[in-house]
Design a protein around this nucleic acid. Structure first.
Lengths: 341, 341
DNA sequence: CTGAAAGCGCTTACAG
DNA sequence: CTGAAAGCGCTTACAG
């Protein structure tokens, strides 16, 4: 490294010296301190010196002094999970409006685990942390609390932590299942998400409640849990089709499952929607381009992210937050569902 | 805010007082200073005090003192672009191995733009920045250079900036096009990526070179540029199919295009692969579940991310870096390609 | 209208 | 074996 050649970055002191004022004056000019009354000529001199030296204040020093960083963190389980992009974008957008930056990391085993990230973050690097769909979330949350870092869960609601923002998963499931019921289906199966997620549990509950309310029996044999991959969705579909009395319709907890299910049905020679209707949660872009295009429930992902950032920033760290983001959420009817034959 | 109730976070001074030693001793114990010789009893007392107070060093203060943060940043254009998850994961993994954290942000217009992020980052918050597929990249790079922040481009190689790591896009295109040629196709179209990306240009060049090398003419009418969406891919396919003499095979620059193309072909009643072969770059998980499953070229995305982090961390900031990540990259044959009829 | 001083919480070269 | 001091680059209450 030839650091010797590289000019040292200018500091406040350099600017002050060049403008022949005290460092504090430069600081107050730059931060726009309203209680500062200063001669115009002085201000001009200061700004000129800043420009001459291309001075940029050091954010680390400022953060240390002020005790805040202007940065929010977000921890997600896996960047390959297609739910998160829209959530992150919503969160970034809300952060931008609040004058904050949002930085995201994933907490999967490659890279740092969630615990290790929480540790880094613990030490004053961010003003708050959104824990999105993280598993070992309760212990992380309590470690963050100890460290005095405000946090908020997203898409997960553990027993112990009453600080979360979630989808209306029950409502979304009801939209999907009622659509199938309205088409005259009664043997309606459910490809559920992985059991560790509270979100999967909610969707399953919504499915069961909706069927019950319609007087339709929800047999356990019609519910198959699967990881959030196309492959797992295909496997689940195969098992359902192998039943003695296969379903005429499937409610998939995630459109990723549905894509796998579509594929499995095709391979099994079961025609969608003629012989089997499929509806899924999440209206990812690809849903319009599957074969056939999928009927889905579009979810307010962007709003979920936005809301998380707003609540994190605007609440007290020990306030109870239990918010369900309900809208906009709607059934998008395409070609994967049809009346029961 | 009831900050009064909340106990102030313990500092080094608190620990030192409790252990009856100087702050510097605590610091050296905690950082594992090898040149520190210390009585065992003292060390125990220090560690006990740390545990008692649940002390965590303040990372901001440490960063200010040391002049480094232990954090690398990555800026991507859009979280919804499915290329980046694998790249980010590779980068996070490599960062973890180097004892660094990687934090990612997107530079789309919602939230902060790239320029604004670069500004934040400029000020000492990260030890380096990966600019992945960013457009206004040249001006950002020069502003980072001025601010003394090491940076590296990924998946983009502008004229002026000889510091990048890229895919072997030409090689990938050759793999795809040679596959079609080997099947006897000669009217091979190309759905190209958006023209602003250097990556799209490389793939197009690879396509043209490969055809030329095989003595097949690449007419301009067989090349259609499209944004990286299914919809744009479908639109491009429609235009190709409307030609007087439509192609018998298509090389799509991105599997997202291919999904749209598949859909357009289906709607037009053109059977894939019988009447039309399609091969695309990127072996996203969904490629195995389309109808029919897509033949693709799998790209070394994780390696690209890994390499970016390693090069950023291990090179001098003014070193020229022009690295092409070639492997592993392979043709994944599925059911969307067949011999020319 | 502007300056001097203290201090945010660390680390590290130096002293003893 | 341990301590005292300086300093990273800022901001802010206070003084004049």
């Amino acid at each position: 490294m030839n650091d010797a050649n590289r000019p040292r970055k200018p500091t406040l002191a350099d600017v002050a010296a060049r403008a022949s004022v005290d460092r504090s004056v430069v600081s107050r000019v730059l931060t726009g301190d309203s209680r500062l009354s200063i001669r115009d000529s002085t201000r001009t001199r200061v700004l000129q010196a800043v420009a001459d030296l291309k001075y940029r204040p050091n954010a680390i020093a400022r953060s240390l002094r002020q005790g805040r960083t202007g940065i929010l963190g977000m921890l997600i389980p896996d960047f390959e999970n297609p739910v998160y992009p829209a959530i992150i974008k919503g969160a970034e957008s809300a952060a931008g409006e609040l004058g904050l930056a949002l930085l995201t990391a994933s907490a999967c085993d490659e890279g740092f685990g969630a615990r290790r990230y929480a540790e880094i973050i613990t030490q004053g690097r961010v003003d708050g942390l959104v824990l999105a769909g993280i598993s070992e979330t309760e212990e992380i949350a309590s470690s963050l609390t100890r460290a005095g870092v405000p946090w908020l869960m997203l898409n997960r609601r553990p027993e112990s932590a009453r600080r979360y923002v979630v989808y209306d998963d029950v409502g979304a499931a009801a939209l999907a299942v009622n659509h199938l019921l309205a088409q005259g289906h009664t043997r309606i199966a459910h490809v559920a998400g992985p059991s560790r997620g509270s979100c999967a549990a909610q969707r399953r509950a919504g499915y069961e409640d909706t069927l019950r309310a319609a007087g339709v029996e929800a047999s356990d044999g019609l519910i198959v849990a699967a990881d959030n991959t196309e492959e797992a969705g295909a496997g689940a579909m195969e098992r359902l089709l192998a039943a003695i009395e296969p379903p005429t319709a499937v409610f998939a907890a995630n459109v990723v499952h549905a894509i796998g299910a579509l594929h499995a049905a095709e391979r099994a020679g079961v025609r969608v929607p003629n012989e089997l209707s499929i509806v899924a949660i999440h209206d990812f872009r690809v849903a319009a381009f599957t074969h056939p295009p999928l009927t889905t429930v579009s979810m307010p992902s962007s709003e979920l992210g936005r809301r998380a950032v707003q609540l994190l920033e605007q609440s007290k760290p020990d306030e109870v937050i239990e918010e369900v983001v309900t809208g906009p959420m709607e059934l998008v009817v395409r070609s994967s569902t049809a009346p029961a034959g």
